[in-house]
Write a protein that binds this DNA or RNA. Sequence first.
DNA 1: ATAATAAAAGTATTTAAATACTTTTATGTC
DNA 2: GACATAAAAGTATTTAAATACTTTTATTAT
Lengths: 143, 143
Amino acid sequence: MLSLTCKTAIKAVIYLATKMESGEKAGIREIATFINASEHTVGKMLQTLVKEDVINSMKGPNGGFFITAKQKNQSLLKIIHAIDGTEIFQECGLGLSKCSATHPCPIHNDYKVVRDGFKHMCLQKKVSDLLEPVNDGLAYLMG
Amino acid sequence: MLSLTCKTAIKAVIYLATKMESGEKAGIREIATFINASEHTVGKMLQTLVKEDVINSMKGPNGGFFITAKQKNQSLLKIIHAIDGTEIFQECGLGLSKCSATHPCPIHNDYKVVRDGFKHMCLQKKVSDLLEPVNDGLAYLMG
DNA sequence: ATAATAAAAGTATTTAAATACTTTTATGTC
DNA sequence: GACATAAAAGTATTTAAATACTTTTATTAT
Protein backbone atom coordinates (compact mmCIF):
# COMPACT_ATOMS: atom_id res chain seq x y z
CA MET A 1 0.00 0.00 0.00
CA LEU A 2 2.69 2.48 1.00
CA SER A 3 5.77 2.89 -1.19
CA LEU A 4 9.17 1.98 0.20
CA THR A 5 10.13 5.65 0.12
CA CYS A 6 7.08 6.49 2.19
CA LYS A 7 7.95 3.92 4.83
CA THR A 8 11.45 5.38 4.95
CA ALA A 9 9.96 8.85 5.34
CA ILE A 10 7.88 7.81 8.33
CA LYS A 11 10.90 6.31 10.05
CA ALA A 12 12.97 9.42 9.33
CA VAL A 13 10.35 11.73 10.81
CA ILE A 14 10.08 9.59 13.93
CA TYR A 15 13.85 9.70 14.25
CA LEU A 16 13.85 13.50 13.96
CA ALA A 17 11.17 13.59 16.64
CA THR A 18 13.48 11.73 19.04
CA LYS A 19 15.99 14.54 18.48
CA MET A 20 13.50 17.36 19.03
CA GLU A 21 13.63 17.62 22.80
CA SER A 22 17.37 18.25 22.80
CA GLY A 23 17.01 20.73 19.95
CA GLU A 24 19.60 18.85 17.91
CA LYS A 25 19.50 18.80 14.14
CA ALA A 26 20.34 15.64 12.25
CA GLY A 27 22.27 15.27 8.98
CA ILE A 28 21.42 12.99 6.09
CA ARG A 29 24.13 10.49 6.96
CA GLU A 30 23.08 10.25 10.60
CA ILE A 31 19.41 9.71 9.70
CA ALA A 32 20.20 7.16 7.01
CA THR A 33 22.38 5.20 9.40
CA PHE A 34 19.82 5.17 12.15
CA ILE A 35 16.92 3.98 10.03
CA ASN A 36 19.11 1.68 7.95
CA ALA A 37 18.41 3.23 4.56
CA SER A 38 20.49 4.52 1.65
CA GLU A 39 21.89 8.02 2.09
CA HIS A 40 20.85 9.04 -1.39
CA THR A 41 17.30 7.85 -1.01
CA VAL A 42 17.02 9.57 2.36
CA GLY A 43 18.43 12.83 0.98
CA LYS A 44 15.95 13.00 -1.86
CA MET A 45 13.04 12.07 0.33
CA LEU A 46 13.90 14.61 3.04
CA GLN A 47 13.88 17.35 0.39
CA THR A 48 10.29 16.47 -0.41
CA LEU A 49 9.32 16.47 3.25
CA VAL A 50 10.84 19.95 3.70
CA LYS A 51 8.98 21.25 0.64
CA GLU A 52 5.73 19.87 2.04
CA ASP A 53 6.35 21.42 5.48
CA VAL A 54 6.50 18.08 7.23
CA ILE A 55 10.01 18.86 8.50
CA ASN A 56 12.47 21.78 8.35
CA SER A 57 16.06 22.18 7.33
CA MET A 58 18.96 24.54 7.70
CA LYS A 59 21.89 24.65 5.33
CA GLY A 60 25.50 25.25 6.24
CA PRO A 61 27.64 24.26 9.22
CA ASN A 62 25.57 23.15 12.21
CA GLY A 63 22.74 22.74 9.73
CA GLY A 64 20.59 19.70 9.28
CA PHE A 65 17.00 18.55 9.47
CA PHE A 66 14.67 19.04 12.42
CA ILE A 67 11.02 19.25 13.38
CA THR A 68 9.04 21.70 15.50
CA ALA A 69 6.68 20.91 18.34
CA LYS A 70 3.79 21.61 16.01
CA GLN A 71 5.15 19.19 13.42
CA LYS A 72 5.52 16.55 16.11
CA ASN A 73 1.75 16.58 16.40
CA GLN A 74 1.23 15.89 12.71
CA SER A 75 -0.53 12.69 11.77
CA LEU A 76 1.03 9.84 9.82
CA LEU A 77 -1.37 10.75 7.05
CA LYS A 78 0.38 14.09 6.53
CA ILE A 79 3.67 12.29 5.83
CA ILE A 80 1.98 9.78 3.54
CA HIS A 81 0.25 12.50 1.54
CA ALA A 82 3.55 14.33 1.14
CA ILE A 83 5.34 11.30 -0.33
CA ASP A 84 2.71 9.05 -1.93
CA GLY A 85 0.02 11.63 -2.63
CA THR A 86 -3.65 11.60 -1.73
CA GLU A 87 -4.83 9.02 -4.27
CA ILE A 88 -3.62 5.92 -2.48
CA PHE A 89 -6.62 5.79 -0.16
CA GLN A 90 -9.00 5.64 -3.09
CA GLU A 91 -7.40 2.81 -5.03
CA CYS A 92 -9.60 -0.09 -6.12
CA GLY A 93 -8.75 -3.44 -4.56
CA LEU A 94 -8.78 -5.12 -7.96
CA GLY A 95 -7.20 -2.28 -9.92
CA LEU A 96 -10.27 -0.97 -11.77
CA SER A 97 -9.75 2.62 -12.84
CA LYS A 98 -13.31 3.70 -12.11
CA CYS A 99 -14.33 1.66 -9.12
CA SER A 100 -17.06 3.40 -7.14
CA ALA A 101 -20.32 2.78 -5.33
CA THR A 102 -22.17 3.07 -8.65
CA HIS A 103 -19.65 0.99 -10.64
CA PRO A 104 -18.07 -1.29 -8.06
CA CYS A 105 -15.66 -4.17 -8.42
CA PRO A 106 -16.75 -7.39 -6.72
CA ILE A 107 -14.86 -6.60 -3.53
CA HIS A 108 -15.51 -2.86 -3.48
CA ASN A 109 -17.35 -2.62 -0.17
CA ASP A 110 -15.21 -5.07 1.74
CA TYR A 111 -11.97 -3.56 0.52
CA LYS A 112 -13.24 -0.09 1.34
CA VAL A 113 -13.70 -1.12 4.96
CA VAL A 114 -10.09 -2.28 5.18
CA ARG A 115 -8.70 0.72 3.31
CA ASP A 116 -10.70 3.21 5.36
CA GLY A 117 -9.56 1.45 8.51
CA PHE A 118 -5.96 1.96 7.51
CA LYS A 119 -6.60 5.59 6.62
CA HIS A 120 -8.32 6.19 9.92
CA MET A 121 -5.37 4.69 11.73
CA CYS A 122 -2.96 6.92 9.82
CA LEU A 123 -5.05 9.97 10.61
CA GLN A 124 -5.28 9.17 14.28
CA LYS A 125 -1.64 8.32 14.91
CA LYS A 126 0.52 11.37 15.53
CA VAL A 127 4.28 11.42 15.23
CA SER A 128 4.39 11.99 18.99
CA ASP A 129 2.43 8.77 19.58
CA LEU A 130 4.91 6.73 17.57
CA LEU A 131 7.86 8.42 19.19
CA GLU A 132 7.02 7.26 22.69
CA PRO A 133 7.63 3.52 22.32
CA VAL A 134 10.87 4.28 20.49
CA ASN A 135 12.06 6.54 23.28
CA ASP A 136 11.12 3.88 25.83
CA GLY A 137 13.06 1.23 23.92
CA LEU A 138 9.84 -0.69 23.20
CA ALA A 139 9.85 -0.19 19.43
CA TYR A 140 12.54 0.06 16.77
CA LEU A 141 13.23 1.89 13.52
CA MET A 142 15.49 -0.78 12.05
CA GLY A 143 16.33 -4.47 12.24
CA MET B 1 -0.62 -4.79 -0.98
CA LEU B 2 -1.56 -7.14 -3.81
CA SER B 3 0.50 -7.13 -7.00
CA LEU B 4 -1.11 -6.10 -10.26
CA THR B 5 -0.79 -9.67 -11.50
CA CYS B 6 -2.63 -10.90 -8.43
CA LYS B 7 -5.51 -8.49 -8.99
CA THR B 8 -5.68 -9.70 -12.58
CA ALA B 9 -5.73 -13.30 -11.35
CA ILE B 10 -8.70 -12.66 -9.07
CA LYS B 11 -10.67 -11.09 -11.91
CA ALA B 12 -9.80 -13.97 -14.23
CA VAL B 13 -10.97 -16.58 -11.74
CA ILE B 14 -14.23 -14.73 -11.18
CA TYR B 15 -14.71 -14.59 -14.93
CA LEU B 16 -14.13 -18.34 -15.23
CA ALA B 17 -16.67 -18.84 -12.47
CA THR B 18 -19.30 -17.03 -14.54
CA LYS B 19 -18.61 -19.60 -17.26
CA MET B 20 -18.84 -22.63 -14.99
CA GLU B 21 -22.58 -23.20 -14.98
CA SER B 22 -22.71 -23.55 -18.74
CA GLY B 23 -19.66 -25.83 -18.68
CA GLU B 24 -17.88 -23.59 -21.20
CA LYS B 25 -14.13 -23.24 -21.25
CA ALA B 26 -12.53 -19.89 -21.91
CA GLY B 27 -9.39 -19.11 -23.94
CA ILE B 28 -6.66 -16.68 -23.03
CA ARG B 29 -7.85 -14.07 -25.52
CA GLU B 30 -11.43 -14.18 -24.30
CA ILE B 31 -10.42 -13.85 -20.65
CA ALA B 32 -7.98 -11.02 -21.36
CA THR B 33 -10.61 -9.12 -23.29
CA PHE B 34 -13.25 -9.50 -20.63
CA ILE B 35 -11.10 -8.35 -17.73
CA ASN B 36 -9.31 -5.73 -19.82
CA ALA B 37 -5.78 -7.06 -19.37
CA SER B 38 -2.88 -7.94 -21.63
CA GLU B 39 -3.11 -11.39 -23.29
CA HIS B 40 0.48 -12.18 -22.47
CA THR B 41 0.19 -11.27 -18.85
CA VAL B 42 -3.03 -13.28 -18.55
CA GLY B 43 -1.46 -16.32 -20.24
CA LYS B 44 1.50 -16.40 -17.92
CA MET B 45 -0.63 -15.87 -14.85
CA LEU B 46 -3.15 -18.58 -15.79
CA GLN B 47 -0.29 -21.08 -16.09
CA THR B 48 0.60 -20.39 -12.47
CA LEU B 49 -3.00 -20.77 -11.36
CA VAL B 50 -3.23 -24.15 -13.10
CA LYS B 51 -0.01 -25.31 -11.47
CA GLU B 52 -1.37 -24.28 -8.08
CA ASP B 53 -4.70 -26.07 -8.67
CA VAL B 54 -6.71 -22.88 -8.50
CA ILE B 55 -8.08 -23.51 -12.00
CA ASN B 56 -7.80 -26.23 -14.68
CA SER B 57 -6.91 -26.28 -18.33
CA MET B 58 -7.24 -28.47 -21.41
CA LYS B 59 -4.99 -28.18 -24.43
CA GLY B 60 -6.04 -28.63 -28.00
CA PRO B 61 -9.18 -27.72 -29.91
CA ASN B 62 -12.14 -27.02 -27.66
CA GLY B 63 -9.56 -26.61 -24.93
CA GLY B 64 -9.27 -23.69 -22.59
CA PHE B 65 -9.38 -22.79 -18.92
CA PHE B 66 -12.18 -23.69 -16.53
CA ILE B 67 -12.94 -24.23 -12.87
CA THR B 68 -14.78 -26.98 -11.00
CA ALA B 69 -17.58 -26.61 -8.47
CA LYS B 70 -15.08 -27.29 -5.73
CA GLN B 71 -12.74 -24.60 -7.01
CA LYS B 72 -15.64 -22.17 -7.07
CA ASN B 73 -15.75 -22.48 -3.31
CA GLN B 74 -12.11 -21.53 -2.90
CA SER B 75 -11.33 -18.39 -0.95
CA LEU B 76 -9.70 -15.29 -2.35
CA LEU B 77 -6.76 -16.15 -0.15
CA LYS B 78 -6.05 -19.29 -2.17
CA ILE B 79 -5.66 -17.20 -5.32
CA ILE B 80 -3.50 -14.65 -3.54
CA HIS B 81 -1.22 -17.30 -2.11
CA ALA B 82 -0.82 -18.85 -5.55
CA ILE B 83 0.31 -15.59 -7.16
CA ASP B 84 1.86 -13.42 -4.45
CA GLY B 85 2.88 -16.11 -1.98
CA THR B 86 2.15 -16.43 1.70
CA GLU B 87 4.53 -13.74 2.95
CA ILE B 88 2.45 -10.72 2.09
CA PHE B 89 0.26 -11.01 5.16
CA GLN B 90 3.28 -10.82 7.43
CA GLU B 91 4.93 -7.74 5.97
CA CYS B 92 5.91 -4.95 8.34
CA GLY B 93 4.05 -1.69 7.83
CA LEU B 94 7.32 0.26 7.86
CA GLY B 95 9.40 -2.31 5.99
CA LEU B 96 11.49 -3.70 8.85
CA SER B 97 12.78 -7.15 8.00
CA LYS B 98 12.33 -8.55 11.49
CA CYS B 99 9.23 -6.84 12.79
CA SER B 100 7.50 -8.92 15.44
CA ALA B 101 5.81 -8.70 18.82
CA THR B 102 9.21 -8.89 20.50
CA HIS B 103 10.94 -6.49 18.08
CA PRO B 104 8.12 -4.27 16.81
CA CYS B 105 8.17 -1.19 14.62
CA PRO B 106 6.29 1.81 16.04
CA ILE B 107 3.07 0.91 14.21
CA HIS B 108 3.33 -2.85 14.56
CA ASN B 109 0.13 -3.48 16.50
CA ASP B 110 -2.06 -1.03 14.66
CA TYR B 111 -0.88 -2.19 11.26
CA LYS B 112 -1.37 -5.80 12.28
CA VAL B 113 -5.03 -5.09 12.96
CA VAL B 114 -5.52 -3.67 9.47
CA ARG B 115 -3.49 -6.41 7.77
CA ASP B 116 -5.24 -9.19 9.65
CA GLY B 117 -8.59 -7.63 8.79
CA PHE B 118 -7.70 -7.77 5.12
CA LYS B 119 -6.51 -11.35 5.43
CA HIS B 120 -9.66 -12.34 7.23
CA MET B 121 -11.73 -10.78 4.49
CA CYS B 122 -9.75 -12.66 1.83
CA LEU B 123 -10.19 -15.91 3.72
CA GLN B 124 -13.92 -15.45 4.16
CA LYS B 125 -14.76 -14.38 0.62
CA LYS B 126 -15.25 -17.30 -1.72
CA VAL B 127 -15.12 -17.06 -5.49
CA SER B 128 -18.82 -17.92 -5.49
CA ASP B 129 -19.56 -14.91 -3.28
CA LEU B 130 -17.83 -12.54 -5.67
CA LEU B 131 -19.45 -14.13 -8.66
CA GLU B 132 -23.01 -13.32 -7.61
CA PRO B 133 -22.94 -9.54 -7.93
CA VAL B 134 -21.20 -9.90 -11.29
CA ASN B 135 -23.87 -12.28 -12.54
CA ASP B 136 -26.56 -9.92 -11.30
CA GLY B 137 -24.98 -6.97 -13.10
CA LEU B 138 -24.24 -5.25 -9.79
CA ALA B 139 -20.46 -5.45 -9.99
CA TYR B 140 -17.90 -5.27 -12.79
CA LEU B 141 -14.56 -6.80 -13.75
CA MET B 142 -13.39 -3.85 -15.84
CA GLY B 143 -13.92 -0.13 -16.37
C1' DA C 1 -1.90 -40.42 -39.20
C1' DT C 2 -2.35 -35.51 -40.06
C1' DA C 3 -3.65 -30.99 -39.39
C1' DA C 4 -5.46 -27.52 -36.56
C1' DT C 5 -6.04 -25.56 -32.15
C1' DA C 6 -4.82 -23.92 -27.81
C1' DA C 7 -2.11 -24.10 -23.63
C1' DA C 8 2.83 -24.45 -21.70
C1' DA C 9 7.22 -22.89 -21.39
C1' DG C 10 11.05 -20.14 -21.97
C1' DT C 11 13.13 -15.74 -23.32
C1' DA C 12 13.31 -10.78 -24.09
C1' DT C 13 11.81 -6.14 -23.64
C1' DT C 14 9.65 -2.31 -21.34
C1' DT C 15 8.43 0.52 -17.49
C1' DA C 16 8.44 2.60 -13.14
C1' DA C 17 10.36 2.75 -8.72
C1' DA C 18 14.33 2.92 -6.18
C1' DT C 19 18.96 4.03 -5.70
C1' DA C 20 23.27 6.33 -6.91
C1' DC C 21 25.96 10.21 -8.46
C1' DT C 22 27.22 15.17 -9.49
C1' DT C 23 26.74 19.97 -9.28
C1' DT C 24 24.89 24.03 -7.11
C1' DT C 25 23.46 27.05 -3.42
C1' DA C 26 23.05 28.66 1.22
C1' DT C 27 24.97 29.45 5.89
C1' DG C 28 27.91 29.65 9.48
C1' DT C 29 32.95 30.15 11.27
C1' DC C 30 37.45 31.92 11.25
C1' DG D 1 35.65 37.89 2.76
C1' DA D 2 37.44 33.16 2.17
C1' DC D 3 36.60 28.60 3.54
C1' DA D 4 34.21 24.67 5.22
C1' DT D 5 29.91 22.44 5.87
C1' DA D 6 25.59 20.65 4.70
C1' DA D 7 21.27 20.76 2.18
C1' DA D 8 19.06 21.42 -2.61
C1' DA D 9 18.62 20.22 -7.10
C1' DG D 10 19.16 17.86 -11.17
C1' DT D 11 20.71 13.80 -13.71
C1' DA D 12 21.90 8.93 -14.36
C1' DT D 13 21.88 4.15 -13.28
C1' DT D 14 20.04 -0.01 -11.34
C1' DT D 15 16.49 -3.23 -10.16
C1' DA D 16 12.32 -5.70 -10.15
C1' DA D 17 7.82 -6.07 -11.83
C1' DA D 18 5.08 -6.15 -15.68
C1' DT D 19 4.43 -6.93 -20.36
C1' DA D 20 5.56 -8.76 -24.90
C1' DC D 21 7.28 -12.27 -27.95
C1' DT D 22 8.65 -17.01 -29.67
C1' DT D 23 8.89 -21.83 -29.58
C1' DT D 24 7.23 -26.20 -27.93
C1' DT D 25 3.96 -29.62 -26.51
C1' DA D 26 -0.47 -31.74 -25.90
C1' DT D 27 -5.14 -32.71 -27.56
C1' DT D 28 -8.89 -33.40 -30.61
C1' DA D 29 -11.29 -33.69 -34.98
C1' DT D 30 -11.04 -35.17 -39.58
